[in-house]
């Protein structure tokens, strides 16, 4: 049993006929992902890599039995797309789109939560469960390998670095979740930790944080309170130790404000919770290898 994406995941891609949609439908199919439908209003009846395109998500759910949506639509229309997916009955919604207004994500994040839908993103690379060969998003397929380590990360490229290094060291992954770098994410590091905690296929957890907000501290507090790190080893890397205050470092959420959201605070919280902290992102593979005696 892996989390979020399983062998039952049937994917509908919203924004299927755009450049990104077309390209990544091809990439996902190549990986083995069960992409069953595309949606682009006005383009119903077309096909992208043999995948049927519908005008609405509701049709994709009814006809193609889609249950997981991947969203590529441009930022001004992303809120509409997420609510459409939730109302159509998708149980997992993954939002790749960057630069979504925070008031839009505040509404759809809370809406998805109220409806019991797992939302990942926005501004994220997607998720992957290598075992059931389900990769949903823009993550490069070649880096993954099935195995026991779960990864949740606020940074796309750092996820690839760390997962790539794990696979190179012969260590596979159970679930990899790219949570995104926006201030209001659908799934936080704490949400991810709770999912991994109860997943029998996950033997170790890697968390990748960055400056801004307090979601790292929140996850660390839970790990400390439950003693989770004693049951499943947890490793963390936090980017932005040298970032100046008041400057957004590439991600909308990567911002130290009035001394809050610093990497130092996050690293201290993780250490206090018994989480092993890495200086270089690529160190993590070696830590896991040693601890799991792989």
């Amino acid at each position: 049993m892996v989390v979020v994406l399983t062998s039952d995941s049937r994917i509908v891609v919203q924004g299927a006929t755009g450049y990104q949609g077309q390209f990544h439908i091809g990439q996902m199919k190549q990986f083995g992902t069960n992409v069953v439908a595309g949606v682009t209003p006005g383009k119903g009846g077309e096909k992208v890599h043999d995948v049927p395109v519908f005008d609405t998500v509701a049709e994709a759910v009814q006809v193609a039995k889609a249950n997981t949506s991947l969203i590529f639509v441009p930022a001004p229309y992303a809120k509409d797309a997420v609510i459409e997916a939730v109302d159509a009955g998708c149980k997992v919604v993954i939002v790749i789109t960057e630069h979504i207004p925070v008031h839009d994500s505040a509404v759809f994040v809370n809406y998805a939560k109220a409806k019991g839908v797992t939302l990942i993103g926005p501004n994220c690379p997607g998720a992957c469960s290598p075992g059931p060969k389900s990769k949903v998003g823009i993550l490069p397929g070649v880096i993954f390998k099935p195995g026991p380590v779960a990864v949740a990360s606020k940074s796309g490229t750092l996820t690839y670095e760390i997962v790539g290094a794990l696979s190179e060291a012969g260590i596979g992954q159970s679930s990899v979740l790219g949570l995104g770098g926006d201030p209001i994410p659908g799934t936080t590091l704490l949400d991810a930790v709770k999912l991994f905690e109860h997943d029998a296929d996950t033997k170790a957890i890697v968390l990748v944080g960055e400056i801004g907000g307090g979601h790292e501290e929140e996850a660390a507090e839970y790990i400390q309170r439950t003693g989770l790190a004693k049951r499943k080893p947890i490793y963390a890397y936090v980017a932005g130790q040298t970032a100046p205050e008041g400057k957004k470092m590439g991600h909308a959420g990567a911002l130290v404000e009035k001394g809050k959201g610093t990497a130092a605070s996050k690293l201290a919280a993780f250490k206090a919770a018994g989480v092993k902290v890495a200086v270089f992102p690529t160190d993590i593979a070696q830590f896991v290898k040693t601890d799991l005696r792989l």
Partner: peptide, 17 residues
């Protein structure tokens, strides 16, 4: 110069070592 906000920040941090 790097690709991705996290990796770029991580590169800044690595230099300080």
């Amino acid at each position: 110069m790097a690709n991705g906000a996290g990796l770029t920040m991580g590169t800044l941090d690595a230099l300080t070592q």
